[in-house]
Computed example of a mutant assay.
Amino acid sequence: MSFLPSNIIYNFLISFGVIVGASLLAGIGALINDHPPLKTMFNIAGSVKIWAVAVALGGTFSSFEAIEKGIFKGEIKSIIKQAVYVVVAVLGANMGYGFIRLIQKCGESIIK
């Protein structure tokens, strides 16, 4: 995997999409099961954040291999590249979480 801006965009949007997609589908499941959908969406968004980052990175082992290569073979560029990918994936997951929080806040204000 080369260090391209498109990979950074993919990592961000994949982690964002995992959070939003999982939360929205959990909300549909909550409606079917007669549970509160907004609360369920918020709980799921918080619990899948780490998985969204792992999915965006393409699995954890490839990242560990790249970091290992950087540490033991002296390839600092590899460590920096993986660090950027991890930070971008975390940002995407947090933005997805924030988006779900925004939906929850808007839903609560409409209900009141």
Rank of each mutant, 00 (worst) to 15 (best):
F64R: 07
E65W: 05
K77Y: 04
K73T: 05
I71K: 11
E65L: 15
F64S: 02
S63V: 08
K73W: 11
V48Q: 03
S47G: 05
G58R: 03
A66F: 01
G58T: 09
S47H: 02
W51M: 11
A54M: 12
G70Y: 10
W51L: 06
I76V: 15
A56F: 13
A52R: 03
E75D: 01
A66N: 12
F64Y: 11
E65N: 12
E75G: 02
E68Y: 15
G74K: 08
S78T: 07
I50W: 05
A45G: 12
G46T: 01
I67S: 13
E75F: 08
A56M: 04
V53S: 10
K77H: 04
F61H: 06
K77M: 04
F61Q: 12
S78Q: 04
T60Q: 08
G46W: 09
G70H: 13
A66Y: 05
E75L: 11
K49S: 05
L57S: 06
V55I: 15
G74Q: 06
G46H: 03
A56H: 14
F42A: 00
K49I: 03
W51A: 01
S78N: 03
A52K: 06
L57Q: 04
G74V: 02
S78D: 03
A56T: 05
N43K: 04
V55S: 04
K69F: 14
N43A: 06
E75M: 04
I44V: 07
I50A: 10
